[in-house]
Nucleic acid binder design. Sequence first.
DNA 1: GTCTATAAATCGATAGAC
DNA 2: GTCTATCGATTTATAGAC
Lengths: 214, 214
Amino acid sequence: MSVSTSQVKLRVLPSGRTRILDEAAKLFLSGGYGDTSLRDIASAVGIQPASIYHHFHSKEELFTEILRIGVEHTTRAFDEVTETLATTLRSLDPQETLLAHIEAHLIALFEHGPYTAANIVAFPVAPEAVKSAVVPIRDQYEQRWDTLLQSLATSGLLDPNLDVRMARRILLGSINSTIEWFTPKQYSRKKKDAQSVNDLANVMTTLVWKGIAR
Amino acid sequence: MSVSTSQVKLRVLPSGRTRILDEAAKLFLSGGYGDTSLRDIASAVGIQPASIYHHFHSKEELFTEILRIGVEHTTRAFDEVTETLATTLRSLDPQETLLAHIEAHLIALFEHGPYTAANIVAFPVAPEAVKSAVVPIRDQYEQRWDTLLQSLATSGLLDPNLDVRMARRILLGSINSTIEWFTPKQYSRKKKDAQSVNDLANVMTTLVWKGIAR
DNA sequence: GTCTATAAATCGATAGAC
DNA sequence: GTCTATCGATTTATAGAC
């Protein structure tokens, strides 16, 4: 794993605003937008509901910000992999390139927890105003995948009958849907099944690349 | 397409209960559980909110019934394909078997509209009581896929390194995620891209079976 | 930056007439 | 089986003290 230049930084106790975002993200993730009240969020943070309005103008703005942060994390993870692969001397195996990006997406999904996961489970039933605000930055992320897959296609590495855009949608859909059943168990070794995010990334990549047929 | 024995039946105007279910399913699909009020539903049906309580004991019961109907439609579609394939004389090609079931699932998803689709987008953020009630019948449906894939694996038709249960989860996840971007255009022929549900099923099956690599 | 207090609207649900 | 009327609780959001 690469080490960013800002890797060495102090562990800061979350400020008020960040505490609100963290707790709200967890609650929106499990209960969606409509069933999560500002009272629930304030209670989880340990403040009064009115205090939230010092940091956010409305409930919708708070929710939008959470989704935005989630996409930001995912996008940054993608770009870091791109950069790392570009500066690597050895030749770029297409399946390994795919694996690296799939793993980055999954790490963002499971290790930045509620922010990225909320983009999967809470976004589809979010208020229209929230969707409209988040769609543009989601598009930017998806564009990166289109570019990646298109470069593979241009190099003749993909099935020529494949619609690249559709393949990207199905690929991201299958990766994102893992949030509903996969739970990474970092320290469990009791089974041979996929336990870590890295294991899951390997299975996903093989399945996407070669399919399930023998 | 097979014709069931009950194909010939009268077009009945939806009764009060069915009207409520139909409109509620649409609203829950677009806005989730918490942001859809009984007033919204009653207004869409053209009745008063209190009238809903003659047909359902609570909002949660109404929502649970909608999700249950959705799973029921999907399960029935799966079973009808299984039966049709079993009574077909010609040999069963594994990829064609897979295609038939994937297409049945997609048809249920897009043509029984709100009921099945709500199970994808509204279920993950549903109240716990609703989830608990629906999970058992969802499990029954998923069990059918496990059985199907296991029979293919036992016949040596699948990648022997594959975890069948995980493959099923990824497979269903990718199929279900199409609800977020695919819109069937029955009568449009302007492009060569997938337009009908049948086209989509073919693309999905090829991708799952052979992967994206050439 | 967090608090108390409260406004104004909306929620799920009930009672009872017809 | 649908209505009118309404209860009690909860919602987002605001005003203003500290």
